[in-house]
Design a protein around this nucleic acid. Structure first.
Lengths: 300, 300
DNA sequence: AGCGGTTACAGTCTGAGCCTGTGACCGTTG
DNA sequence: CAACGGTCACAGGCTCAGACTGTAACCGCT
């Protein structure tokens, strides 16, 4: 037979009280049962741990050597249980989180700050990626979660965190730059700069529907990947574009953001239902808390 | 319910094989029993450790966190068992050993060397003490064992390790210095130097019997505690004395050792039966081995 | 001698740990 | 699409370990 933790607890109690009777009371056990368990432990080890007679109980030298060891085993097991329970609650472990480049500047700081405060022992790794890599990463499990615009694919779960106006982005000095709000149809005759069609087809499909509803097909004179590049082209007078208002913080010169009537952009947290675990649930809880207490898109 | 080592072993096996069926075979257990035990562990912890379906078994994040902890507990327990067993065999622990001053020079080196070789993890402390302190130390438990002349008291157990001639110790140039052997009665008219009567009464009682059997009462002109002091007095011509031959190594000038007919001195290991333990038994075994392989009194 | 305390032995009972049998599910094969 | 072989989990049964109570043996105190 092998040693069991129950026996180590019994042994440590007898060693502490130097009395089977008192230890048994402490353990809520009959003294006879305790005596039996200690004898079984001694038989199992092949070592006498206590000298005892009707006057009392004393540790043998082997018992004295074994006591700190037994206590260390018990303490180590308590630690193991704690580690398991904390991991089970998602308080420890690892989380890989992707940020769509255009949302990273205003989403990453509050999310990372809040997660570090709530779960200081959680290891959080963040990635700044374009949309196609983001969705692929979620699907393969490389990313546990992502902050993005809605990817518009059925297998990725999302929850909206923030909604903000979509703006026409015009070169400084543009005739419409001073308006409080304009309609997409007002830009039917402008040159446009947009991201590559293959950068994320579901989004371009939506753009096509939006322009058709406005009654025109945009004259795309240049394509560029990434919001900073689009902003540069607009500032250079190459064309206009359409972006969420929070993109204003990326470039502040040479461009003007004018809200488009009836158009909004959502920021979402995205994940795969099939890859859920306690750490991810904690992240979702934290982001739910964030949306109730702060205007996320104004930061950056 | 609390966690038991058996469950940790089962958990580690399933984690290693990533299969209940294979782990059960490895553990010589029915797969159904293993499944039950793991579920009981998960209920006890309140944490799911494995994801499983008909395709296979995978560790959850909590399971991954728990695995090294579980293995550490099992390893720590193996260590505890080893510590207990080694202590039970007397391979570790502490031993306090006293040496009668006059036997230390030739007994201490081989005893300490042999014990250190046989039990490198045993902590050995040696003391150089006079006979009264030596016996008192055995009785109180301060010393676990002692090397000495026979203390001639009934409650101290002894085992003879060596026997050597007893010699008359004469000043250099003494008329009897050139003899091969003399009788105690030859020294009836000499001045004598001896240790104080109260240094160890049982020994002086024996000295009295020895002198009476030789037919005289020694004229003790000086008393001195300790063999080196006695030798100095003999060298100074103050008187003669009687010592074991091994005392020759303490002082080599001004004195001559002439064997006394029919007189021998024993060197013993001494201990209290009521204070026995595995470490002491090991020491006794080691000393028994020493006496069979070396002439102890010739060293020093 | 009686009492109160200690630990250990003996007999009994209950439930935990193991067994076997089998169900439900999944992937592969013919 | 049915049969097969593999997986893990449920159900029922059996044995014995761990708990109980009762009591013996021993020791120190009064």
């Amino acid at each position: 037979m092998t040693v069991e933790l129950r026996q180590l607890r019994y042994f440590a109690a007898v060693a502490e009280h130097l009395s089977f009777s008192r230890a048994a009371k402490h353990l809520n056990l009959a003294q006879q049962s305790l005596s039996q368990q200690i004898r079984a432990l001694e038989r199992g080890l092949g070592v006498r741990l206590f000298d005892r007679d009707t006057r009392g109980t004393r540790l043998t030298a082997a018992g004295q050597a074994f006591l700190p060891e037994a206590r260390a085993v018990l303490a180590r097991c308590d630690t193991a249980v704690l580690v398991a329970r904390r991991a089970g609650r998602g308080e420890t472990g690892h989380l890989n989180v992707a940020f769509l480049t255009s949302t990273a500047n205003y989403m990453l700081p509050p999310v990372v700050r809040a997660m570090r405060e709530r779960f200081p022992d959680l290891e959080l790794t963040t990635y700044d990626v374009p949309i196609d890599e983001l969705v692929a990463g979620l699907r393969t499990g490389r990313f546990d979660a992502a902050f993005s615009r809605p990817p518009l694919v059925p297998d990725v779960a999302t929850r909206v965190l923030a909604v903000e106006p979509v703006c026409a982005v015009l070169p400084a000095g543009h005739p419409l730059a001073g308006r409080d709000v304009i309609h997409l149809s007002d830009l039917g005759t402008e040159n446009w700069v947009l991201t590559p069609r293959d950068s994320w087809p579901p989004w371009h499909a939506k753009y096509d529907r939006d322009f058709a509803a406005a009654g025109f097909t945009p004259r795309v004179v240049q394509r560029a990947a990434g919001v900073p590049n689009l902003l540069g082209l607009v500032a250079a007078g190459v064309g206009v574009t359409r972006l969420a208002r929070s993109a204003r913080s990326i470039r502040r010169t040479g461009v003007v953001f004018v809200p488009l009537a009836d158009d909004h952009a959502e920021t979402v947290v995205a994940w795969m239902h099939s890859h859920e675990g306690p750490v991810l649930r904690n992240l979702l809880d934290v982001t739910a808390t964030l949306t109730g207490t702060a205007n996320l898109t104004s930061e950056g």
